[in-house]
Nucleic acid binder design. Structure first.
Lengths: 214, 214
DNA sequence: TCTCAACAGACCGACTGACTGTCTGTTATA
DNA sequence: TATAACAGACAGTCAGTCGGTCTGTTGAGA
């Protein structure tokens, strides 16, 4: 039987199916037949909407990008929130690490999804860095931070954060906590911020009380 | 015709061929038939020495690892070289960026080689970071650096360096130079080093004289 | 306003070529 | 003669193609 739907709707159905399957079995581990079966369409239908399997992945990444960066921009623009707090919220929204949307990143960090991971990281780094840099510049105006390279500082922080929280390397909670400690310390140094002024970030991450365990 | 060789020799022939082909066409773009043809053996031969195509990649990475980290360790252990200079040489030996062995990295940073890139980065980061951290600790003893997190500092630096010098993102020479500038500045801050004390690193990288272009 | 032909785009499913990994058999070497 | 190195036919899978079919829409004529 043949069910005709609006193109956008079908595309989204395909993306939803691919999303779940890639999450479960990875990109390489998922065949187009798996997607076909899940959506309930035939090969021709899929290749009518997407020109290749990789094209599906790119569309998925684009969807993530719009969602994640949209949320980040919204938060970043809200001047009623203090700078520190805004940074935390942007980072949480990107779920580079823990937080509500951690789900999205989880499956992207599997070795089978290396290409997806790579593309996603590029999108995140190139997208969120200027947003964060903008907030940092506000902080500099307010005398909270001091660096000639706000953009590059954020580049460092984002690159490090996404390498630390890469789920392919397994870590004990203790290791994780001390990484976060070091991350905060290092970021404060980079930004020329007062010691402890970014501690709120550590507190925001996954219920850890900041790395020390007394 | 049938030519029998010592297993190690054959393995290396296969790795050499794979190395060159992956470099040219990427991992996914290279078929096992390509390798077979280049080496001049049949399928059975290849699968006698390696259990899968990915196994070949892993062996290649292992070979890189031994070569790169061996060189790095040798340099790091040479106490006759001053700390600063040793850092430069280790970094050059790893060719995370410019330098003699840049070749090796070049093809690894192609999107088609995402998985290889990912595995390689893991090996580098986990291998070279402790080596560099050791040198930094010497520098701390000598009063040159000051940080409670030498290991994590190097983790940051290595992660950032390998993200900056990722050849998948294209950069003008000017951008590159200013990235290096920022990188040096940030690293000095992280290490609590005197301003300009790491400038020798910038000078060492690819003929750039430190970012300014006169 | 109703009808119907013409069209565009959504969808089908058999087919192709390519590729990885296996298996049985063969040759060389210690 | 036993064992490791190798050959090559083969099976199974998968991504992508292609000619064709179905369906919703549109617009002209009655």
């Amino acid at each position: 039987m043949r069910i005709v739907k609006d193109a956008e709707e079908r595309k989204n159905e395909i993306l939803d199916a691919a999303d779940e399957l890639f999450r479960l079995k990875g990109f390489d581990g998922t065949s187009t037949n798996d997607i076909l079966e899940k959506v309930g369409i035939a090969r021709g239908g899929l290749y009518h909407h997407f020109k290749s399997k990789e094209d599906i992945m790119d569309a998925l990444i684009e969807r993530y990008k719009v969602r994640l960066l949209g949320a980040a921009r919204e938060i970043a623009a809200d001047r009623s929130i203090p700078v520190n707090e805004r940074i935390v919220r942007v980072v949480m929204a990107m779920n580079i690490s823990g937080g509500s949307g951690r789900e999205i990143m989880k499956h992207i960090h599997k070795p089978q999804n290396a290409l997806m991971h790579h593309k996603m990281q590029k999108v995140i780094i190139s997208g969120v860095t200027p947003i964060l840099a903008g907030i940092i510049r506000e902080g500099i105006e307010q005398g909270q931070f001091s660096t000639p390279f706000p953009y590059e500082c954020m580049e460092v922080a984002v690159a490090y954060a996404s390498s630390i929280f890469d789920d392919t390397v397994e870590m004990t909670d203790e290791e994780r906590a001390s990484r976060i400690q070091a991350f905060i310390f290092n970021t404060e140094r980079l930004l020329g911020a007062e010691r402890g002024s970014l501690m709120c970030i550590a507190r925001a991450f996954g219920g850890s009380n900041g790395g020390s365990h007394e």
